[in-house]
Design a binder for these strands. Structure first.
Lengths: 112, 112
DNA sequence: CTCATATACAACCATTTGGTTGTACGATAC
DNA sequence: GTATCGTACAACCAAATGGTTGTATATGAG
């Protein structure tokens, strides 16, 4: 399986974008179904422009994409980028697991 | 399986902490083996105090813990918190998968 | 055509972030 | 005891973040 690595800068943007409850909620909603920016904006207690900025941050991170439909912009969640972030976390967990298995080896050596 | 949910604020801190290449590297190294703060500081092109702040951000997020050993502070990666973040990303992916399966249902209804 | 809607974007502002240097203090080495 | 090492923490600063309002523009409705 070929994994397309994200650049460090791209990775920063992905995690940064996920570090906000409103943005995480936008990702959830746009993964669930296509939503326009104004529909999103109606849900949060902040200005339209603020929501627009959150969507822009998510778009730059690759967590959502926008397509024009008439005068609306439809926002779609991008599961691939989520998966990239997940793979990075998995690689961290693997480091831990390798450490544990090294420790097991050490202990079984000890026992002989 | 009981999953201990992180608060929104705690989740913000975890992702925020991961949104920096130096901090991700510190997590990698401290998951691999125990390292003192000064050992960490020697690796990065910034002041000791700056590295100390990065470690503090990771500690507040629950991604590392510190224990005193003599005059040193040993930093340990905390795989549990990594797993919490991973579970959140998995729940996002699940939302996507449910959408796909709804779409499949729709298409098979269409076919009948 | 005119009006309302959906979006884009600039300018502005307060707060947070990420770095710096300097100072203080406990633990270890000599 | 004194010097050194490892850490903690405060004060400071520039840049980024997350919100605001205001203005412009394109699309759809009537």
């Amino acid at each position: 399986m070929v994994v397309y690595e994200l650049s460090e800068e791209q990775t920063n943007k992905v995690f940064r974008a996920l570090a906000d409850a409103t943005r995480r909620d936008i990702v959830r909603r746009t993964l669930h179904a296509e939503v326009s920016i104004s529909e999103l904006a109606a849900s949060y207690d902040m200005s339209f422009a603020a929501v627009q900025k959150h969507v822009a941050a998510l778009e730059v991170a690759g967590l959502v994409s926008k397509i024009a439909r008439g005068r609306e912009r439809i926002v779609r969640g991008q599961p691939d980028t989520i998966r990239h972030a997940q793979e990075l976390l998995t690689s961290l967990e693997d480091i831990w697991r390798q450490r544990i298995s090294r420790l097991d080896d050490f202990l079984s050596d000890e026992a002989t």
